[in-house]
Design a protein around this nucleic acid. Sequence first.
RNA 1: GUGAGUGUAGCCCAGCGGUCAAGGCGCCAGGCUGUGGCCCUGGAUAUCGAGGGUUCGAAUCCCUCCACUCACCCCA
Length: 418
Amino acid sequence: MALYRAARGTTDILPEEQVYWRYIEQKAASLAQLYGYERIDTPVFEETGLFTRSVGENTDIVQKEMYTFEDRGGNSLTLRPEGTAPVCRAYLEHGMNNLPQPVKRYYLASIFRYERPQAGRYRQHHQFGCEAIGDADPALDAEVIDLAWQFFQSLGLQRLTLNLNSIGCKQCRPKYLAVLKDYYASNLATLCADCKTRVERNPLRLLDCKQATCQQVADAAPRSVDHLCPECAEHFRRLQGYLNLLGLPFVINHRLVRGLDYYPHTVFEIQPEAEGAQSTIGGGGRYDDLIEELGGKPTPAIGFATGIERIVLNLKRENVPIPPLPRPQVFVAHIGEAARGEAIKLSASLRRNGGGVIEGMGDRSLKAQLRQANSLGVRYTVIIGEDELKAGAVVLRDMTTAQQKTVPISKLPAELGS
RNA sequence: GUGAGUGUAGCCCAGCGGUCAAGGCGCCAGGCUGUGGCCCUGGAUAUCGAGGGUUCGAAUCCCUCCACUCACCCCA
């Protein structure tokens, strides 16, 4: 029947799903506003270099997941695979370093990654993200984490875990990585095949391998928090103090690392308790070196992002009640062609008055039109036939009580308003 | 990129070698010629994922491909 279907890993968001999306977007926007974030929309594609440079040449995202193409002018462009770099690019491009710091921006945007689709994972997904650029205060870390946490709270998601870690800065991280490599080199025999290659390629990733035996090795591995330089240690200590002040129930997870190269210092992730492969619904951290990497002055920053699809998944899983979207409450039915013109005029005037109206179409029987009104779930049906036309009136039927009465057209708005 | 499972109307699905591919939901219409929801009756909608093979005969068996789902990798 259908000649085409949505491309692999993409999906249509149908009206049944839209309730969740509107609910989430509205919560995101109002919460961001409470913390002083203003919305920014960046283009869906950017010069490829922006991402290879910021996300990191050796990350999976850059190596195998980007939608990169050449346009007719020969430029290499890439559909954005994450939201932070474009915001940083805009920060620099528009001289936002001249604004009061930190600059706070949020976005709701499509993200594209060429991956094998599965539950909670798509080739086009959507993120709500916040970025606070231009301040190194650990209080800003705490505020961002609080925003992320409150976001999920306000959505009604329970049973979440807030994981926190610090993976050091440019100074202390290399030293820690050396210690980590040494430790793993001496445990090489017990590691899974993937981990054996990670020891050289991406040692931090060793820590969150899902293999049982690797987890035992990871549990006993040297901890990044024990190898922080004094500045990083102090930052992390103060952050925890602020989080305690806020009453946020964080747990320090020594095995929490993040997949993008640009995260130093603070990293955090929020995970639902429910099982399933996609355990993370939101995460973030500091990216103090990114603005400089993109050609700006050294500028500390922190942000976080959440996947809307995964939030929807969890809202459904936890049966969180979602308020319904408003729909027209009036159906206008007509009997015969003569009444048709009046039905059209009446519908239009009700709408201009601010009321939603659905009109019966075609020359269908009154019975059929009422059936439709019923399945649409409207509160009232207005009926216009020849009798009403002559009298300058309509029949107003209350669909819930099945009571109906004849009212003059001029009185109809008042009747519906009650 | 790797592995497993599944593909029959808009949706849920029966049929697993032999009449027009069954049922439910939904849709349309009638019973009630100007009145919905319940009930009853009727109707429309399926190249049985695609291509090839085996067979007198394939939705059913075999092969290839595609898609979907789930998991790994990785990530939101």
